[in-house]
Computed example of a mutant assay.
Amino acid sequence: MAHIIVVGNEKGGSGKSTTAMHVATALVRMGHKVGVLDLDLRQRSFARYVENRQKFIAKHGILLPCPAFRDLPEVAPDALRPGENIYDHRLSQAVIGMEEEADFILIDCPGSHTRLSQVAHTLADTLITPLNDSFIDFDLLARIDADSNRVLGPSIYSEMVWNARQLRAKAGLKPIDWVVVRNRTGPQQMHNKKKIADAVQALSKRIGFRVAPGFSERVIFRELFPRGLTLLDLRDIGVVKLNLSNVAARQELRELMRELRLPGVSVEF
């Protein structure tokens, strides 16, 4: 069966779609078959990323590895079992339609709580939660005391992940490997950066996730999105000499892929 990767949190602007596209493209480039779904049915950032990539390939005639995107299938009401949620059924059918052909299925969730996102988390073998490196986004994981930064308890999102883990355990499935990815780290405000790092590490032991380095804030990501490209495509489109920022960003992706510890994946790019 395909290994299911879910990219999710309940905050916008944390780099979910950028993370999802780079992970999916890296896997395809390493020879794996990857199917992808975008559960943000309104914004569709991840879907547009793939669409932009397909348009770039068609326009320029450059053969670039591309994950196989699929929309959620439409379902007739009479196809539902009594009491079955239509979104549950659509997601289930999409996954079933890809899992026989794909080594990995990557699902990008919206930056809000939805029924689709909740169900997707229960399917996750690997859960990637991008987190901006600030205490504003740290609130996604836990409630903290404003004066001491002491953790008071898990957030609503952390409780949702806990519930997803419980459902998987009852179904006899393996535990979710939850990886929190620290995005938009920067050299400024080093004292605050250390406080966030310490808080995330302390919380990881309490509620059970691993911490991985993510992507810094770089212009290259915003420039690549309209063309559906990733850092790994630069040489294919004629960028022979990478600047220091591009090299550093490529190394960030390499480190992230190693830290994900996906089954059967040897990071070579």
Rank of each mutant, 00 (worst) to 15 (best):
K11Y: 12
G12Q: 12
T19I: 15
A20C: 14
A20P: 12
L27G: 04
V28T: 11
V36T: 14
D38C: 11
L41I: 15
L41P: 03
R42A: 15
F46P: 11
A47F: 09
A47D: 07
E51K: 15
E51A: 13
R53D: 03
F56S: 01
I57D: 05
E74V: 00
A76C: 00
L80M: 07
E84F: 01
E84N: 06
H89D: 01
L91H: 00
S92A: 08
A94W: 01
E101I: 02
I105V: 15
L106H: 07
G111M: 11
R115K: 14
A120D: 02
L127N: 14
L127V: 04
N132T: 14
S134I: 06
S134T: 13
L140A: 14
V151I: 14
P154H: 10
S155V: 08
E159M: 10
E159T: 05
L167G: 02
A171K: 13
I176T: 07
R182G: 03
G186I: 00
Q188V: 06
Q189S: 09
K195A: 11
K195E: 09
A202Q: 13
S204G: 11
I207M: 02
I207T: 06
G208T: 00
P213I: 00
R218N: 04
I220Y: 09
R222S: 13
E223I: 02
G228M: 00
L231M: 11
L232I: 04
N243G: 13
A248Y: 11
R250E: 12
R250F: 13
Q251I: 08
E252L: 10
L256I: 09
L260A: 09
P263A: 08
